[in-house]
Structures are given as structure tokens and as C-alpha cells.
Design a protein around this nucleic acid. Sequence first.
DNA 1: CTTGCTGCAAAAGTTTTGCACACGT
DNA 2: ACGTGTGCAAAACTTTTGCAGCAAG
Lengths: 166, 166
Amino acid sequence: MSKVENQPAPTADRPADETFAPPLCAIFRRFLKGQGLKFTTERAVILDTVLGREGVFEADELIAEIKRTHPEHRVSKATVYRTLKHLIEAGIISEVLLDATRAHYQLTYGRPDVGHLVHTDPDTDTLSVTEFPTGELREFVQRVCEEHGLDPLSHRVVVYATPRRT
Amino acid sequence: MSKVENQPAPTADRPADETFAPPLCAIFRRFLKGQGLKFTTERAVILDTVLGREGVFEADELIAEIKRTHPEHRVSKATVYRTLKHLIEAGIISEVLLDATRAHYQLTYGRPDVGHLVHTDPDTDTLSVTEFPTGELREFVQRVCEEHGLDPLSHRVVVYATPRRT
DNA sequence: CTTGCTGCAAAAGTTTTGCACACGT
DNA sequence: ACGTGTGCAAAACTTTTGCAGCAAG
């Protein structure tokens, strides 16, 4: 299973021109301060690069992207992994579990109910990941948790599909 | 995040005394023959051990279990991993993606619509995984795929929850 | 200044693979 | 017999960690 290729994000759930107005940088700063942590140049560069990504990405890709878009700042692998954890804690990104070989991440601030539709492109034999809204499953999730005396924190939905056989 | 502890499987989806009547061993045999592969002692031992497991398990645990229940047959790690792949192909088990650090597996033959509810036990600080039926999501999944011109293969639903704050 | 942060390289953990020999069919 | 399978150990990968110097608040 090779690297994942992203679809240009579906319009149903995320209109093309929707911008993330909230200053995520400020949000991250506030989070860090609250934890007694520091807002460093490296963390700024990483957040900036994450904000520029469309859809799902891997740690590896993020590192490559930083090298490309911020050649003046070299950020180490270790720092990227450490910062991704903080971004998750801050609620800015989430881990997406698509396969068991490595972690995927995605900017999810303000859009918690995103599912992932994974399918192979028969031509290129690469995996594509498209998003879809899962808001209508909230009630279902709530009910499942209630039956077990729990409160839901988050949910993940991944659908694996194949090109329709005509 | 430590190893996962299994809840004794919920009764809603899998009544306590439900037994897997279909001879999975025969099914696996047939699958292997169809692929020009061989049914070896090691594969029999692995399948037998998988059938004895309740709920979700890891490769590591399976190896330990084999050592315990079949001390006369030593099965190597490599063979376990290789056989797990075949069992997935044969449709007998599935990969369950609960966290990004390692793969989990579960016997799913004949019960494709199982979701996983992950929650921490506040006392022991261990993770529990409970199953719940997701059959009622089929229509939703079908619709999502149709909107993208795809046919669904399978879907995974994982809900993360926390003990209800009373 | 004090405390946390970074980069490097090494460590850790899981899964895969190459190879010589053994075993189903 | 032929072609697969197995075990072992090493390799491959991703992610984590220890440490010495560096930087943010």
C-alpha cells in the first residue's frame, strides 16, 4: 500500500472558497501558554505548513513540504513529531487511521465530523482519500455511548470502496 | 497508550452462545487451494488460536497465545504475520485500526458490521474495546459511495469515549 | 536567568524480507 | 519432485528518546 494521494477536498462538506478565519496561530499560542510551553520558530513553521496542506498528510510529507516551502528553516524530524502531538492536543489537527503502517494527520479544527472514503484509482493504482460529512451519525454515536454509560469524545469513520462495476 | 483489554463481547451483536458453525478451517483450506497455497500445520495452529480469541487482538498476543496453548508447535513471528495476511484475504479476519502504533485484528467472518467503542478505564488506566453493531449505517455508507460513483467494500467505525461525568 | 526546545544520533517497536532447508501436494 | 512454507536473523520503517547546546519568556 503506497502513499496516499488526496482528492481536492469535496465541496459538499467544505466549499471551495471557505477559509479558516479563526487565527489558528493565535489559538495554538494560547494553548501553548496555557501549558507552560513555548511558541518557537520551528512550531510556527510547522503550523504554517500544516495550514497550507489540503486533506490528509503524513509526517514524512510534512517534513518534505517544510524543506520545500521554508528552505531557510531546517526543522528536524523529532521536532515535527513532537509538534504534531501538541497540535493534536490543541485540537487543531487529528490523527486519521487509514492503514496500519503509519499515521496520517489532517487539519480538523472547527470541522470535527469528517469521514474518509478510501478507494484505489484503477489506472494509477494509487490510493485516493476523499472526505465526506458524518454529522448525521452523531445521534447514532451518542446512542451507542449511552448504552455503555459513556460520553462520546470523537469518532472515526473510514469507508473503503472500489470503482463502480458498471 | 498501552495494550488493549477486551470486553467480553456485547450480547446485542453476538449472543453469548453463538457459535461459528461454518467450518472456518475448511473455508481457509478452500481459499488456500484456490490460490495454489498450502495448508500447513503452522497455518492450522494459527487459525485455531485465532478462533479461540475473543474480540480484538494483536500479533504479539497471538504469538504468546500460541506458545501457551500449543507448546508443542513453535510458530515463528514471520509465519504469524504472513498467515494473518492470508486470513485477511480469505475474509476470515479483519484489521482493526485503533491506534497508529500497531495493527489490531479480529475474527469477522460472517459479521462484517462491527464497530469499536474505545474507552479508558479510569481506575486501571487501560483501554477497553467493546463492539457494537453498525448494520444500520449501511444505507448511509451506500449513499456516500454512490455520490462518488463508487461501490462500498467495507467500512470501519471507531468511537472514542470517556466514562460519563455524572 | 530559568525552563523548555532543538537537532542529532541512537534506541525502540513493529512488520518485512532473504536465504537455506523442510514440507505439503 | 516441484513449488511453497518455515525459521532465523537481519533489514526496513516509523516513531521516540537522551543529551548537550540554544532560545523563548
